[in-house]
C-alpha cells in the first residue's frame, strides 16, 4: 500500500494512480472490511501452496538425490569389487611373469644356455688393458679342437646379446699404463689366442675391470691418474673376442 502511495507521487505511472483512485472509491462506497479480509486471504492461500510445493519439491529432490547417491555408491561398490578382481588377476599375471624371468635368469639356466650355444667357462681370469691392449693375467684357450663340431649358428637374438656384452666391456675405463711386472710371455700368449680363430671364437672372454680396481692394478696412483679413457673403437680392435 505504501508503495502504491509512493508511486502516486510519481507522475510517470499514471495507470497505477488511476487504479488506486478506483479502489479507494469502491472502499468508501461499501465500507465492509470483511470483504477486504477475504481478498487479503487469497494471497496467503497462494503462499501456502507455494510453501507446500517447495517443501514437497525439496523432499522429492532430497529423495532423488539420496537415490542417486545410493545408486552411485552401490555401483561404486560393484566397480570396487570388479577392480579388486582385476587387480588380483594382474598381480597373479605379474607374479607368473617374474617367476618366468627369475627362472630364465638363474645362474643354472644361464650356464645351460651358454653351453648350448657352444660357450665354455673361461679359465684364468684375464683383464685387457684398453689403453695399450696389454693383457693382465695369463690367458689360456678353451681347448676346442678344430675338428670338433661347430656349435649351431648364433641367431640374431644371440648376437644382440653378445653385442650388449661387448658394449658393456668397451665402455669401461682402463689405465694406459701397466705395472713394471708386465709379462711379455702373457702378451705373446694373447697374440697366440687372437691368431687362432677357433680358439679365439670360443675361448677367453676378456674381463674388463672398472676404473677404481684398474687404478689399483697400475703400480702407482699417478700412473692411474694419467690413464687414458680408451675409445670404443680402439677397445674393440684390441678385444680378442672372436
Amino acid at each position: 500500500m505504501s508503495a502504491n502511495a509512493r508511486k502516486l507521487v510519481e507522475p510517470i505511472n499514471e495507470s497505477t494512480a488511476t487504479e488506486y483512485a478506483t479502489s479507494g472509491a469502491k472502499a468508501r462506497k461499501h465500507s465492509r472490511p470483511e470483504l477486504k479480509l477475504v481478498s487479503q486471504l487469497r494471497p496467503e492461500k497462494a503462499s501456502r501452496g507455494v510453501f507446500a510445493l517447495l517443501v514437497g519439491g525439496l523432499l522429492g529432490a532430497g529423495l532423488v538425490v539420496m537415490l542417486l547417491i545410493n545408486t552411485s555408491l552401490a555401483s561404486g561398490a560393484f566397480v570396487v569389487s570388479e577392480l579388486q578382481t582385476q587387480k588380483s588377476a594382474l598381480t597373479v599375471e605379474a607374479q607368473a611373469l617374474s617367476k618366468e624371468v627369475d627362472a630364465m635368469s638363474s645362474p643354472a639356466n644361464l650356464e645351460a644356455k651358454a653351453r648350448a650355444l657352444g660357450m665354455k667357462p673361461s679359465k684364468n681370469p684375464v683383464f685387457l688393458n684398453l689403453g695399450d691392449g696389454s693383457i693382465l693375467g695369463k690367458p689360456n684357450g678353451a681347448n676346442v679342437s678344430p675338428n670338433a663340431p661347430l656349435p649351431k649358428l648364433a641367431t640374431p637374438a644371440d648376437l644382440t646379446a653378445v653385442e650388449a656384452v661387448d658394449n658393456a666391456a668397451v665402455t669401461s675405463d682402463f689405465p694406459a699404463t701397466v705395472g713394471p711386472n708386465y709379462d711379455p710371455a702373457a702378451a705373446d700368449a694373447a697374440a697366440a689366442v687372437a691368431a687362432t680363430p677357433e680358439d679365439a671364437a670360443w675361448g677367453e672372454i676378456v674381463d674388463v675391470t672398472d676404473a677404481p680396481k684398474a687404478a689399483r692394478a697400475g703400480k702407482s696412483g699417478k700412473a692411474a691418474k694419467k690413464a687414458k679413457i680408451a675409445k670404443s673403437d680402439a677397445g674393440l680392435s684390441a678385444t680378442p673376442i672372436g
Binding site: 683383464f127 693382465l136 713394471p180 675391470t209 680396481k213
Partner: peptide, 12 residues
Amino acid sequence: LKTRHVPPTGTT
C-alpha cells in the same frame, strides 16, 4: 675374482 673384477696385481 672374475665376478668381482679383481685384476692381477702384476707383482711377483
